[in-house]
Each structure stands twice: as C-alpha cells, then as structure tokens.
C-alpha cells in the first residue's frame, strides 16, 4: 500500500515529466516532425530517484493525466489521440523503462556502490533507452504496418538525443545524492 508520502512523490515526478513537455521542444531540421523532447529525461529520473515501482507509477500517472486531456506531452500534445498515434509504443515503453531504469540502477549500486555515475548511466542505457525502444519500435510497426526493421530505422532518430539525456540524468542523480 502506498503511503501518502509515496503518493505525493509520485505525483511530483508525474508533474516533472509534464513540465518537461511544456518546455519548448527542439526540432532538428531533418527529423520532420519527430519531437526531440526532454521528457525521456524525466522518465529516467523518475526511475533512478523513486526506484522501479514508484517510478513506473509516476509514469503511469503522467500518462493517465495525458489521456484525460492535459496537453503535457511534448509539443502540447495530449488527450486520447496520442495513444492512437505512431508513437504510442514509446509511451507504454516509458512505464517499463522507468521500472527497468530504477531496477537496474539499484542492482548495479548493490554490486558497485562507489560507481554511482556509471551505474546510473548503464541503467539509463539499458532501462531508459533499450527497454523503451523494445516497446516503441514494435509500436511503430503495429500502428503503421512498417516491418520491424524499417520501424527500427524510423525510431533510431531519437537515439542521439536520448544518449545526451541519459548523461544528464546520470550526472544529476550523482550530484543529488551528494547533496541530500
């Protein structure tokens, strides 16, 4: 059962992910409408800081708020429509990604507690990026009937931005623990 404190922290991170969607997104000229967003940063942070279970719940809560009509998906998108679009797989993947990010981070910390940055970074790469793509790419394939390999080509445009975000997330988490 979630304590009140858990609930408030989960809501906070859901709001954090929302805020990252309200910041104007970058549009790289060659990506043609594909948003390079800061939101996956929020997803990774939720997993790293809250841990797997509460991190996933934060993402779930965020998606619920989006579904109900709040325009907090990057680019001012929101509502049920986004769940029928081609990027729906990534949205679902965020839930698993936050969980995996948190779980892998905790597991790695257990084995090498001094290597905080490295643990966070690997957790972001495996959980924050790989897991999300394992949901996102099939999602594109299912929604558009592209084959998996073509969908992978299409989805790979997000990857450079996500690597940058993972570096930032790992760095933030390292500094955060030193402070609190």
């Amino acid at each position: 059962m979630l304590s009140t404190r858990d609930l408030v922290q989960i809501a906070l991170f859901a709001a954090l992910i929302a805020v990252m969607g309200l910041i104007p997104k970058f549009d790289l000229p060659f990506t043609a409408g594909v948003p390079i967003t800061a939101q996956t940063l929020g997803v990774m942070l939720a997993g790293l800081i809250l841990g797997p279970k509460r991190g996933a719940l934060a993402v779930l809560l965020f998606l619920f708020v989006v579904a109900m009509g709040a325009p907090v998906l990057s680019g001012g998108r929101g509502g049920l429509g986004v769940f029928f679009g081609p990027t729906v797989g990534f949205l679902i993947g965020w839930i698993a990604g936050a969980w995996a990010c948190g779980a892998i981070f905790q597991w790695l910390l257990g084995h090498m507690p001094e290597r905080r940055f490295l643990s966070a970074l690997l957790a972001c790469w495996l959980g924050g990026i790989l897991v999300i793509y394992c949901f996102g790419v099939p999602g594109i394939s299912l929604r558009t009937e592209l084959t998996l390999s073509k969908a992978m080509m299409a989805g790979s445009v997000f990857i450079p931005g996500d690597i940058l975000k993972s570096l930032l997330a790992a760095w933030l988490v390292t500094r955060l623990r030193l402070r609190t």
Partner: peptide, 8 residues
C-alpha cells in the same frame, strides 16, 4: 493523485 499533479 491527479489533483496533485495538476497542482504541481
């Protein structure tokens, strides 16, 4: 929880 998110 939803109300908290909207508030936050």
């Amino acid at each position: 929880a939803v109300a908290l998110v909207i508030r936050f």
